[in-house]
Simulated scan of single mutants.
Amino acid sequence: MTRRPYRQIVVFARGGGWGTDRQVDGHDRVAVIRGTDFAAVRSGRTDAVPRRWEKRTLIAPRRVRPDDVLLEISGGSAARGQSTGRSLFVGPDVLPAFDYPVIPASFCRVVRFDPEVVDPRYAYYGLRDMYLSGRAGDYENQSTGISNFQFERFLDAELLRVPPMDEQRRIVAVLAAFDDKIEINDRVVTASEELLRAEFDALAVTSGGTVPVTAMVEFNPRTPPPDRDGAPYVDMAALSTYVAGIDSWSHRVPRGGSRFRNGDTLLARITPCLENGKAAWVDFLAPDETATGSTEFVVMRARAGVPAQFPYFLARDERFRGHAIRKMAGSSGRQRVNAAHIAEFLVAVPDPARLAGFGERADAAFAHLTALRAETRVLEATRDALLPELMSGRLHLP
């Protein structure tokens, strides 16, 4: 079976840009996709992708087209064991979701493949196999604390099995079926949260005045200690900036940190995580199980008579987060907010009937979203187990 270096199948590769944050003569507005945006773009969220002004003459050669692949070439996270080399396939639904031309950020590269030799999505799955297997780390070097993907070395050293086109397309059909279902689940989760967020915002319209937030929410509440032999542990990387769920955690012997249980909300209290909107809803634990997490979390829990999801949507509220950000203190780059200062926030008191109705709908929706995310984890694990078998040819599709 033919194995080719990527240099033989890549027909175009170009680094991205960052432009400027304000309008300048000779510059046009663009959307700039970073490596950190890959997951959100896959799930249909484009609002967090930065909009910048790029020099007009540089847009056309960098502009992303359908069937391109965006490859992260700088960044990564040694602390989390995350190398560079993450990739995003630009399917038919990606670009129409943007209001401006799309270019990759300066830490990424747009890669285009020869469609006469390789199905572009098949080549993308080769890149994904490279990343998940850890081979992407073989092409890294360190420069001033930043990991850099050695693209030229990768082009010559990384080999892709290139079977006949009909076999490539059969493999793509199988793997894409998983990806498409995962994407549908993610989009349902995102849309459902947006609807509930709009309903939460509307509760303030029926307000009967304001009370201190502590009348409705407990901050860092008392929680039974975790199992001394080991308990689930959540780090900051597991918190999303746009959806509630926690999809990655580890187990470790408790060594302090925050404590929480199902139904609690985690709010990042340190810069830049708080400004970026990192928050999460805890729903993955066993009944009565206590988990631990980063010391940089504020744990929020609804008081009796308040919907359990109320603190989560409060954590997503721009006014509440703005209050928390203004209360941050500390040295530049390491500022934090204390729970006691967050508790000074005044919250509108909703109409009791509407608040109860919101709670019923949120309960039903979050139960459904929890089930969807559990299904997604199974789909991802199955796809990632099939990926190396199909790409290597060890598993043959008739």
Score class of each variant (00 low, 15 high):
365 A>Y: 03
58 L>E: 14
204 A>D: 12
278 K>F: 10
94 V>H: 06
113 F>I: 10
177 A>E: 08
25 D>G: 10
27 H>D: 00
87 S>T: 13
285 L>I: 03
292 T>C: 15
164 P>H: 13
179 D>T: 06
78 A>K: 14
173 A>D: 01
85 G>T: 02
348 A>P: 11
361 R>K: 09
237 A>K: 07
378 V>E: 09
292 T>S: 12
304 A>F: 07
202 A>M: 12
84 T>S: 13
362 A>N: 03
121 R>V: 00
113 F>G: 11
255 R>S: 08
167 E>W: 01
86 R>T: 08
335 Q>C: 07
245 G>I: 08
90 V>C: 08
126 G>H: 01
392 S>V: 01
175 L>K: 01
265 T>W: 09
189 V>R: 02
32 V>P: 02
61 P>Q: 09
46 T>S: 00
236 M>S: 12
344 E>N: 13
260 F>Q: 05
100 Y>I: 04
294 S>T: 15
125 Y>V: 04
178 F>R: 03
109 R>N: 03
161 R>L: 14
19 G>P: 02
123 A>E: 11
297 F>T: 09
215 A>H: 11
144 T>I: 11
374 A>W: 07
347 V>T: 11
300 M>R: 13
341 H>N: 12
39 A>V: 15
49 V>L: 08
208 G>I: 08
140 E>Y: 07
215 A>Y: 09
239 L>R: 01
131 Y>V: 09
148 N>Y: 05
110 V>L: 13
384 D>Q: 01
110 V>Q: 03
282 V>P: 04
368 H>Y: 11
305 G>E: 01
17 G>P: 00
298 V>F: 12
78 A>G: 14
224 P>A: 10
29 R>K: 14
62 R>N: 12
137 G>Y: 09
71 L>T: 07
276 N>C: 11
23 Q>L: 12
182 I>H: 01
206 T>Q: 08
150 Q>A: 12
95 L>N: 10
381 A>W: 02
198 A>L: 14
354 R>P: 07
298 V>N: 15
323 H>K: 06
20 T>P: 07
87 S>F: 05
132 L>H: 06
281 W>Q: 04
32 V>L: 06
129 D>W: 11
23 Q>F: 03
147 S>A: 13
61 P>L: 08
237 A>G: 04
228 R>W: 12
348 A>G: 10
210 T>E: 14
129 D>P: 02
26 G>A: 12
351 D>V: 03
205 V>M: 12
62 R>V: 11
211 V>L: 15
231 A>C: 15
151 F>D: 04
123 A>N: 10
16 G>W: 06
175 L>M: 06
222 R>P: 09
239 L>V: 03
206 T>P: 15
313 F>Y: 15
107 F>S: 06
287 P>V: 00
386 L>Q: 05
336 R>A: 02
247 D>W: 10
196 L>H: 07
214 T>M: 03
359 G>I: 03
86 R>Q: 14
56 R>D: 14
262 N>W: 04
191 A>F: 04
91 G>W: 02
147 S>C: 05
245 G>E: 15
148 N>D: 01
196 L>K: 07
149 F>W: 10
187 R>C: 08
116 E>A: 07
139 Y>C: 00
